[in-house]
Computed example of a mutant assay.
Amino acid sequence: MTHTLPDARTGRPVTADDFREALAVHASGVVVITAQHAGAPVGLTATSFSSVSLDPPLVSFYVDRASTTWPRLGAADHFAVNILASDQAELATRFARKGVDRFAEPTRWRAGPLGAPLLQDVSAHLICLPYETADVGDHVLVVGLVAEARVHGAGRPLLYHQGRFGRFLAHPAS
């Protein structure tokens, strides 16, 4: 089902380019979602990560339905959310690329307590059990039940803004 609403100013439908341009001004945090499928590590970069609920502890992210990684990631019995630090733009880029071994050097990782790959030097890890998925437009909404949460460093987060990775700079305290 396609929903097309006219732009209130022009009366024309909102184009994908207009929509992308408007969303680009919104900064978002960057995570890498990892899992193990058939004995092999899989993972992808997500900028749509969000907390959903405290009770139960739920998080979510969206993945493009055309993703070649999603079928393997979605079949896993658990996954890890690796919350990236401000100096990990190269890692985020690597996990967003197609046709590369994302887990080869220089990626540093270890198997987590349930087997999902945990990336080294990230700000935090969340180990999640699949809770719910839903097709939403051209993406899949993935909700995970957090089974374990570990903070490794409260440094600055990696952000995604206007098609580029960047760092957060806090305003001076007032």
Rank of each mutant, 00 (worst) to 15 (best):
G74Q: 07
S86A: 15
Q120M: 13
V100D: 00
W70S: 12
R65D: 12
A66V: 07
A124V: 03
A104P: 09
D77V: 12
P71W: 03
L118M: 08
L91T: 04
L114I: 07
F95R: 01
L73Y: 11
W109D: 02
A89T: 11
D64S: 14
A96Q: 08
A134E: 08
A96L: 01
R110G: 11
R97K: 09
V81W: 05
L119R: 05
T133C: 07
V100N: 03
P117Y: 02
S123M: 10
G115L: 02
L114M: 09
C128H: 03
D121I: 01
P106V: 03
T69C: 15
L119H: 09
P130N: 01
L119I: 02
D101H: 13
P113E: 04
L118S: 12
Q120Y: 07
H78Q: 15
R97A: 00
G99C: 04
A76I: 11
T69P: 14
G112P: 11
A104E: 02
P117V: 00
Y131M: 05
A124L: 03
E105R: 10
D87T: 12
P71S: 02
A92S: 14
F79G: 03
A116E: 10
F103R: 12
L91Q: 00
T68K: 12
G115D: 06
G115C: 14
V63Q: 04
V63M: 06
I127S: 05
H78V: 00
S123R: 13
L126K: 08
A80E: 04
S67Y: 03
N82G: 02
L126H: 10
L91P: 11
R108N: 11
P71V: 01
K98E: 00
D64M: 08
G115E: 05
A134G: 15
E90R: 14
A80W: 06
V81G: 09
A111H: 10
S67D: 12
H125M: 03
Q88C: 13
D135G: 15
A92Y: 13
A75T: 07
A134Q: 13
T69L: 08
T69K: 07
F95Q: 03
D77C: 10
V100L: 05
P106D: 04
V100S: 01
H78P: 14
D121Y: 10
F103D: 09
H78L: 14
R97Q: 01
A80M: 02
D77E: 13
L118C: 10
A111F: 03
L129W: 14
T133Q: 10
V81E: 02
W70R: 12
T68N: 13
A116W: 07
A76C: 12
